[in-house]
Design a protein around this nucleic acid. Structure first.
Lengths: 204, 204, 204, 204
DNA sequence: AATGAATGAGCATTCATTCAT
DNA sequence: TATGAATGAATGCTCATTCAT
């Protein structure tokens, strides 16, 4: 790589680094105090920069929250799609999705808090959330269930969208409980517990 | 009853009425704009009283939110316990719980919004929530599942607490989706859909 | 007057008093530091009230400035019209207008400063100014000149509007100089000086 | 001349050019948005340079405004003196001064706006203005009137300083009106209108 | 008990100025 | 010289809460 390439590349990296730093700081601060109770100054201090600098990278406090969500969701969905593409059977796919869900959030407690708690703090966000990446995520689950029904692996008397919501809701609750729990325990293994019920039901 | 007819009793009733009015107003306003974006003045206007009057019945804005939750949860649990007491079989009990859950929230959209969205808007509330009525609610479900296992109706290789969370999470998700949905549809019937999966699983 | 009248009247008076106090404080502060360099807190302190109270009477800092101008201009024009109505001859009328102009501003140095200096501080205000009371004022002068021409008192080879601007400009400059002058001298007498030239010219 | 062609001379020219460019940019921006609403960044962008570069040529935003005034006034007075030196009769001199006044400002609307509107936006500037070039300008008019009185061309019962202010005020008002007018018309011809009144008065 | 005017702490955002490169 | 990213002081406005009536 020539010098001008690396030079520009470096500049970009620096810019990305600071954006990244602000985002990381925001996640931490939001997780700790909640979005509305967090001051932009808190984020700046956590990121080790001046207050005004935040506004060189984000238009407003709200945009920071939106960015936290967008970036994480995008990354999550991209990785999910990649992994799933290689799995054929619907039930195994579902298992992988559930595992990924809990692995990802279980690996970053602050991010998980922001996702579970803060993003729901306002109907506005919920609606954007609903219309954005979240809907896409739910759709992936739904489609997988549909394919499983077609393949004869899953019961056909269930509406795929409802089944998808049930699975999502169950996983979501695992995360919420994990966040609020005083005990420290690994989140990812809960995926298999959820699937045990989701696949086989609780009836004897 | 004499007392409730008495002068003092009447005064108490009036007091209760105004508290009630403020609470109803708060639910409406919180549902519309979110807790942090709601002004105490909004609530007062909605309740048809002066701003200052709010503080004769509640110590702070936060206490209003807490009260909204406490009162609803208390009422919900009381009614739940009453209904369940009369049901013997664990699976039928669970069905009734699920139905009640969705019936109650499905009957009061504003309250549902506050429960699903606003109460999670801050970790603080979530924690109190977790330690308060919510934990009790989860415990009722859990115990029912345990009894079902003892009675041989439910599989024994599932941790009751986890199964309880799964059921709760699934129901919770139904409510959230119902709130955010642009379509109007009855929420209560979703209980049976959830139970179909929860009881029988999705595998063929 | 009955009690309920005086009671309400008193309430109104109190409200008007506070509005008035804020306006007076604003004139003083604006005159001293200029509009842009004045803090709302300065005005509040000068008025002896809390910062927030300002916003119970005015929507914004800008509205205060607008109100200062509106109120003064309105009062000025009303009084001007009243006085002039009783004067028949155009030249005497013009003399009274000129005197009033300098008397009014000469009686309230702070108000004069705001008028001469601050209201021109922004093109925006100038335009509103131009379209508002100011245009009306100029028109009164213009019409008087026109009537004088018709009556054969004034030369007919002058455009009334131009002559009006010349008179206004000359008076205005007297005020500006008076404000900026380190010497203290009465402003009103300058009116006659201006008219000596305006009426007779400087040529021998 | 050698020096101006030399390397150093060229460097100076470049420096002057950039200063000049900033000044021109500032006049445009100030005229458009007003001094207080103009950002240094706006000026830099208009001048086609980086924000920081402005500070290599001016100490502060305020100094830019001062420089706008100083340079224009200096140039104006110099040219005025040159032209007047060749005119003997006081009345003709006064006419030339009035024409120059309106020609100059009428030729550069942005500069005129800054002069008429922005420079008065603060008492501070007004005072400096008063003590600086402006006083000198007024003195030139005053002296010319005095000479006219001595020569028997002008009435002797007028204080020259007052007469000078009257002329200045009238001309100034012509400029202000021209700036605020929606119609486009040439400003310079107004000089003769003003003089018609100033010399002959409006009485028949 | 009820009112609503008054309070004043609190905060997102802007922007003139600096300085490392 | 020139750059433009970074700084951080500064402030208009909001709103939960109080309190005199």
């Amino acid at each position: 790589m020539l010098r001008s390439d690396s030079f520009i590349g470096q500049a970009r990296a620096v810019v990305a680094d600071k954006r990244e730093a602000i985002l990381r700081a925001a996640i931490k601060v939001f997780a700790q105090k909640g979005y509305f109770n967090s001051k932009v100054a808190d984020i700046a201090k956590e990121a080790g920069i001046a207050d005004g600098t935040v506004y060189l990278y984000f238009k407003s406090k709200e945009e920071i929250l939106r960015s936290v969500f967008d970036r994480a969701m995008e990354e999550f969905i991209a990785e999910g799609k990649r992994e799933i593409a290689e799995i054929r059977e619907a039930d195994k796919r579902l298992r992988r999705i559930a595992q990924l869900h809990l692995e990802k959030l279980g690996a970053d407690r602050d991010l998980a808090i922001v996702f579970q708690v803060e993003l729901r703090g306002s109907t506005k966000f919920m609606e954007e959330f609903s219309g954005g990446g979240f809907a896409e995520y739910l759709e992936i689950i739904q489609r997988t269930i549909q394919e499983g029904q077609k393949a004869g692996v899953f019961r056909k008397d269930l509406k795929p969208i409802t089944a998808a919501k049930i699975l999502y809701g169950a996983l979501d609750e695992m995360v919420t409980n994990w966040i609020l729990s005083k005990r420290e325990y690994p989140l990812a293994p809960m995926a298999d517990e959820v699937l045990k019920v989701f696949f086989g039901g609780i009836l004897k």
